[in-house]
Simulated assay, not measured.
Amino acid sequence: MSRIIAGIAGGVPLASVPGSATRPTTDRVKEALFSRLDALGMVQRARVLDLFAGSGALGVEAASRGASTVELVESEAKAAQVCERNARTVNDAVGRRAVTVRRSKVSTFLERVPPGPHWDLVLMDPPYPLGEGQLAAVLSAVALRLAPDAIVVVERSARSPEPDWPEGLTHYADRKYGETRLWFAEPAPAESAAARLDAAEGA
């Protein structure tokens, strides 16, 4: 059973999406990801967007660790219902409505948000069948809606190719965990995340 790793709601179990429509992030990958993000100071008070949210496990983890706002975007009906359940669990734990759920296709949701500095952290765990061209289109839309020091994290199969980064994003790191690879990018041109990463790893 998936659970919240740390923060105010640490240890709280999360509902999972029934069937195989989604691919949940393992607790091992989630813990490694958030340890890295915490080292960069990218979670506390962040405005977080969780695309292709599935159960919402990544977004609610961010809320438990102190994110200011979290939006979970999921189009599949059963998954969106699980997102709502997990959002209520974490909102109750943190004592405020930190997490909201948007039942929508990712492309449609992003089209409705005007360009501008909306998010500090974007987490993306697209389904493996999503084509590379479709992923590139989503990344292009995301790039226009990031804060200057934002980070984008894309979770893919370790066998998938590197995402086709749009002009507005620069890939600066990736990490492999078993069958999963995490890709990290930031707005271009920028060097803040890479510089913070070097400092954190050198500490």
Rank of each mutant, 00 (worst) to 15 (best):
A136S: 12
G54H: 04
E162L: 05
E74H: 05
G66A: 11
G11S: 10
V101Q: 03
D149K: 05
E132K: 11
R97N: 04
M42H: 10
R156C: 11
G133V: 15
A150G: 01
D149R: 06
G95H: 03
V60Y: 02
P148C: 09
P127M: 06
A6C: 11
L123Y: 02
S157Y: 07
R145M: 08
E132H: 10
A93V: 05
A67H: 01
V154W: 00
H171Y: 06
Y177G: 03
D125W: 00
A53I: 04
S35A: 13
V43N: 06
W119G: 01
L146M: 07
V94N: 08
A79M: 04
A136V: 07
T170C: 13
R65L: 04
P187G: 00
F52H: 07
M42A: 13
A137L: 14
R45T: 12
E61Y: 05
V48G: 01
R23V: 11
A188V: 12
E74S: 05
G19C: 06
P115G: 10
L135F: 08
G19Q: 05
R97L: 08
I8N: 05
V70R: 00
H171G: 11
A80I: 06
W119S: 02
M42P: 00
V106P: 03
L146D: 00
G66T: 04
Q134H: 11
G95M: 07
V94D: 05
A193W: 00
A158L: 15
A39W: 11
S157I: 08
L139I: 03
L14I: 06
A39F: 12
C83G: 03
G131D: 09
R112C: 06
L49S: 02
L14T: 02
F34M: 07
E71P: 11
S160Y: 04
L135T: 06
D38I: 06
G10D: 08
G66C: 08
R102W: 10
A32T: 14
A188L: 11
R45H: 13
L14G: 02
Q134F: 08
T26A: 08
M124W: 06
A200S: 12
A147K: 02
P166Q: 06
L72C: 05
E71F: 13
A193K: 00
R97A: 10
I8E: 10
V99L: 07
E76I: 13
S160D: 14
T100D: 12
E186P: 01
G202N: 15
D125R: 00
D125T: 05
R103H: 12
A150Y: 00
G41I: 09
L197I: 09
A158F: 13
R36K: 15
P166R: 03
K30Q: 02
A46P: 00
P24H: 05
R103K: 14
R65D: 03
